[in-house]
């Protein structure tokens, strides 16, 4: 795995830009973790969050529909359509816990996800 370390963030190569559907997500394996990676093509933005939906602990957010609520980019879990901000991870519907978010950077056609060092 290609990885560089920079101010406590480990960047790892997740996939190529064309591996991710426009305005949709894929699931990236990082050791034993699952990270949902989204290409918000309408806004030219990339986001990454945990793949597990905190509502019923389903590994599903990468398969959810993305969109916006006002300006906030969000993803809706395919199971019960709870929605989460892609920016902050905050749950936008009800009291579900928030989700973890990760930094993403694109260099050429490589997509990197930044994982904080613990």
């Amino acid at each position: 795995m290609l990885a560089t370390i920079e101010k406590n963030i480990t960047w790892f190569l997740a996939c190529k830009t064309h591996d991710v559907p426009t305005n949709g997500g894929v699931c990236v394996k990082y050791n034993d973790d699952q990270i949902a990676l989204f290409h918000f093509a309408r806004r030219g933005e990339w986001y990454a969050t945990q793949n597990e939906c905190p509502h019923r602990q389903q590994m599903a957010l990468s398969r959810g529909m993305i969109g916006s609520q006002s300006e906030e980019p969000k993803v809706a879990c395919p199971f019960h359509k709870k929605t989460f901000s892609l920016k902050t991870g905050e749950c936008l519907t009800g009291d579900e816990c928030s989700i973890k978010t990760y930094e993403v950077k694109v260099e050429g056609n490589n997509v990197f996800i930044g994982v904080a060092q613990s």
Binding site: N23, F40, R42, R43, G64, M65, I66, G67, S68, Q69, S70, P73, K74, A76, K81, T83
Partner: peptide, 16 residues
């Protein structure tokens, strides 16, 4: 996307 550009606004969501 064409529908959203022509007839809607914002980035869409799981309802539309």
């Amino acid at each position: 996307d064409e529908v959203l550009d022509k007839l809607g606004s914002g980035d869409g969501c799981e309802l539309c």
